[in-house]
């Protein structure tokens, strides 16, 4: 059975927020919109986003890692937000595993956002319904789009191609290969939610130089340290010694 998901490569994410704004740009104008903003040009502006990048530091100076961490609904295989919904608005699709909210049924009670351990759901203050990432369900099956555009908006926008999209149940898919071969992991597995989205960890490239490698036989100093010979006619001991 298909389970669509995002795999996010933290090894190349530079935290530019292109995924955040392209998500909002697409979704506010689509089936999941609008995504309202309160006080957009005043004090303490706040609005609905399906995807946010959090940046945090790990470790102490100078051994610090700065991590840019894009966060959106993880489309859990066992989504805790679904059973708590009193109206059945929150549901997981059988055909592709996408977790969605039916706005017509949602009463904005927020049970789902309390149940979600990842803080992925946001109440749209204007429409009073719960909103979250849809994996751009209104793009990925849109046959009027070119095949390369049938991807979530964030995936299309990411300049470092840190966001991969595909079926994590298909062992041959790009996302499954990435999870398998690059140490992909799910968030907080102890909650038993089985998130479909995965993250790829930082991977370091190092150089090991052995002492013997430093100097090679063709070291240019062997040439450049040879200075010219003195002229034959310059004075030497030969001119003055008598033994």
């Amino acid at each position: 059975m298909t389970q669509l998901a995002l795999v996010i490569d933290l090894n190349v994410c530079v935290g530019c927020h292109a995924c955040v704004t392209s998500c909002k740009e697409w979704n506010t104008s689509g089936g999941a919109g609008t995504m309202g903003d309160q006080n957009p040009y005043g004090a303490d502006p706040t609005g609905t986003f399906f995807n946010r990048v959090q940046t945090f530091e790990v470790g102490e100076f100078p051994n610090t890692e700065t991590v840019h961490f894009p966060k959106s609904c993880l489309h859990c295989e066992e989504p805790p937000c679904v059973p708590v919904c009193p109206t059945g608005a929150s549901y997981k699709r059988k055909e592709d595993g996408i977790v969605l909210v039916d706005y017509d049924k949602c009463i904005g009670c927020k049970y789902c956002s309390w149940a979600c351990p990842y803080g992925a759901r946001e109440l749209d203050e204007q429409q009073r319904v719960m909103k979250k990432c849809t994996l751009c369900v209104d793009r990925i099956y849109d046959m009027t789009m070119a095949p390369e555009d049938r991807k979530p908006s964030c995936v299309k926008a990411c300049p470092t191609s840190a966001r991969l999209f595909g079926d994590v149940h298909d062992p041959a898919s790009e996302v499954s290969v990435a999870i398998r071969e690059s140490g992909g992991y799910a968030l907080m597995p102890e909650w038993g939610t089985h998130p479909a989205n995965h993250y790829l960890p930082r991977r370091k490239t190092r150089i090991k130089i052995h002492e013997d490698e430093l100097e090679r036989a063709d070291n240019p100093l062997k040439v450049d340290r040879q200075l010219p010979k003195p002229a034959m006619a310059e004075p030497t001991l030969d001119d003055v010694t008598t033994w």
């Binding site: 506010t28 104008s29 309202g36 903003d37 957009p40």
Partner: peptide
């Protein structure tokens, strides 16, 4: 003066 709420919908 700008509205207190922005509900942008592009392409309309």
């Amino acid at each position: 003066t700008r509205a207190a709420i922005l509900a942008f919908f592009g392409g309309k």
